[in-house]
Protein backbone atom coordinates (compact mmCIF):
# COMPACT_ATOMS: atom_id res chain seq x y z
CA UNK A 1 0.00 0.00 0.00
CA UNK A 2 1.24 3.52 -0.76
CA UNK A 3 2.57 5.64 2.06
CA UNK A 4 0.46 8.55 3.25
CA UNK A 5 1.38 12.14 2.71
CA UNK A 6 -0.09 14.38 5.41
CA UNK A 7 0.66 18.11 5.32
CA UNK A 8 3.67 17.41 3.13
CA UNK A 9 5.13 14.77 5.46
CA UNK A 10 5.45 11.18 4.26
CA UNK A 11 4.01 8.68 6.75
CA UNK A 12 5.08 5.06 6.13
CA UNK A 13 2.42 2.34 6.32
CA UNK A 14 2.62 -1.44 5.99
CA UNK A 15 1.13 -3.43 3.12
CA UNK A 16 -2.29 -3.46 4.81
CA UNK A 17 -2.27 0.27 5.47
CA UNK A 18 -1.39 0.23 9.20
CA UNK A 19 1.09 2.87 10.40
CA UNK A 20 4.64 1.55 10.67
CA UNK A 21 5.54 4.00 13.43
CA UNK A 22 2.84 4.52 16.04
CA UNK A 23 4.33 7.91 16.93
CA UNK A 24 3.41 9.20 13.47
CA UNK A 25 -0.27 9.30 14.44
CA UNK A 26 -2.06 12.65 14.65
CA UNK A 27 -5.70 13.65 14.08
CA UNK A 28 -4.85 14.75 10.52
CA UNK A 29 -3.30 11.32 9.90
CA UNK A 30 -6.45 9.63 11.25
CA UNK A 31 -8.61 11.69 8.91
CA UNK A 32 -6.59 10.61 5.92
CA UNK A 33 -6.54 6.95 7.00
CA UNK A 34 -10.33 7.12 7.42
CA UNK A 35 -10.81 8.80 4.07
CA UNK A 36 -8.96 5.95 2.35
CA UNK A 37 -11.50 3.61 3.92
CA UNK A 38 -14.38 5.80 2.77
CA UNK A 39 -15.15 7.07 6.28
CA UNK A 40 -15.75 10.70 7.25
CA UNK A 41 -14.80 10.94 10.93
CA UNK A 42 -17.52 12.33 13.23
CA UNK A 43 -17.54 12.87 17.00
CA UNK A 44 -18.97 9.36 17.33
CA UNK A 45 -15.90 7.97 15.58
CA UNK A 46 -13.44 10.08 17.55
CA UNK A 47 -14.67 8.89 20.93
CA UNK A 48 -14.22 5.26 19.84
CA UNK A 49 -10.71 6.04 18.59
CA UNK A 50 -9.93 7.65 21.95
CA UNK A 51 -11.02 4.50 23.82
CA UNK A 52 -8.89 2.37 21.51
CA UNK A 53 -5.81 4.49 21.98
CA UNK A 54 -6.32 4.43 25.74
CA UNK A 55 -6.65 0.63 25.61
CA UNK A 56 -3.40 0.37 23.71
CA UNK A 57 -1.62 2.71 26.09
CA UNK A 58 -2.68 0.60 29.08
CA UNK A 59 -2.27 -2.92 27.67
CA UNK A 60 0.19 -2.41 24.78
CA UNK A 61 -1.95 -4.47 22.39
CA UNK A 62 -4.85 -3.69 20.06
CA UNK A 63 -8.07 -5.33 21.26
CA UNK A 64 -10.07 -7.96 19.45
CA UNK A 65 -13.83 -7.32 19.15
CA UNK A 66 -14.92 -8.62 22.55
CA UNK A 67 -12.45 -6.67 24.71
CA UNK A 68 -13.06 -3.60 22.52
CA UNK A 69 -16.78 -3.81 23.29
CA UNK A 70 -16.00 -4.27 26.96
CA UNK A 71 -13.76 -1.19 26.99
CA UNK A 72 -16.32 0.92 25.15
CA UNK A 73 -19.09 -0.19 27.50
CA UNK A 74 -16.94 0.86 30.45
CA UNK A 75 -16.00 4.24 28.97
CA UNK A 76 -18.99 5.29 26.88
CA UNK A 77 -21.87 3.19 28.22
CA UNK A 78 -23.72 0.04 27.23
CA UNK A 79 -25.61 1.75 24.38
CA UNK A 80 -22.36 2.15 22.48
CA UNK A 81 -20.74 -1.05 23.64
CA UNK A 82 -22.50 -3.11 20.98
CA UNK A 83 -21.10 -4.66 17.86
CA UNK A 84 -23.98 -3.36 15.74
CA UNK A 85 -23.14 0.21 16.79
CA UNK A 86 -19.46 -0.29 15.99
CA UNK A 87 -20.36 -1.88 12.65
CA UNK A 88 -22.34 1.24 11.75
CA UNK A 89 -19.28 3.43 12.37
CA UNK A 90 -16.54 1.12 11.15
CA UNK A 91 -18.19 -1.25 8.66
CA UNK A 92 -16.87 -4.74 8.03
CA UNK A 93 -14.44 -5.57 10.79
CA UNK A 94 -14.67 -2.75 13.38
CA UNK A 95 -11.76 -3.87 15.58
CA UNK A 96 -9.37 -4.00 12.63
CA UNK A 97 -10.62 -0.88 10.88
CA UNK A 98 -10.82 1.29 13.99
CA UNK A 99 -7.33 0.15 15.09
CA UNK A 100 -5.96 1.15 11.71
CA UNK A 101 -7.51 4.62 11.88
CA UNK A 102 -6.41 4.99 15.53
CA UNK A 103 -2.84 4.43 14.36
CA UNK A 104 -2.44 1.13 16.23
CA UNK A 105 -1.13 -2.25 15.06
CA UNK A 106 -3.56 -4.72 13.54
CA UNK A 107 -5.24 -6.71 16.31
CA UNK A 108 -4.03 -10.29 16.38
CA UNK A 109 -6.37 -13.17 17.18
CA UNK A 110 -9.22 -11.28 15.60
CA UNK A 111 -11.59 -13.37 13.51
Amino acid sequence: MDNLTVNGVIIPVDNEGYLRNLDDWAPAVAEQLAQQEGIQLSDAHWEILAVLRQFYQQFEMSPAMRPLIKAITAELGADKGKSIYLMSLFPGSPAKLASKIAGLPKPTNCL
Binding site: F55, Q58, F59, E60, M61, P63, A64, P67, K70, A71
Partner: peptide, 15 residues
Amino acid sequence: QKNLSANLSMLEMYD
Protein backbone atom coordinates in the same frame (compact mmCIF):
# COMPACT_ATOMS: atom_id res chain seq x y z
CA GLN B 1 10.47 -5.35 23.81
CA LYS B 2 6.81 -5.02 24.73
CA ASN B 3 5.71 -5.23 28.34
CA LEU B 4 4.38 -8.68 29.01
CA SER B 5 2.98 -7.47 32.36
CA ALA B 6 0.77 -4.95 30.52
CA ASN B 7 -0.46 -7.71 28.21
CA LEU B 8 -1.24 -10.04 31.12
CA SER B 9 -3.30 -7.36 32.84
CA MET B 10 -5.40 -7.34 29.63
CA LEU B 11 -6.47 -10.98 30.06
CA GLU B 12 -9.53 -10.06 32.09
CA MET B 13 -10.77 -7.94 29.18
CA TYR B 14 -10.81 -11.22 27.23
CA ASP B 15 -12.70 -12.88 30.14
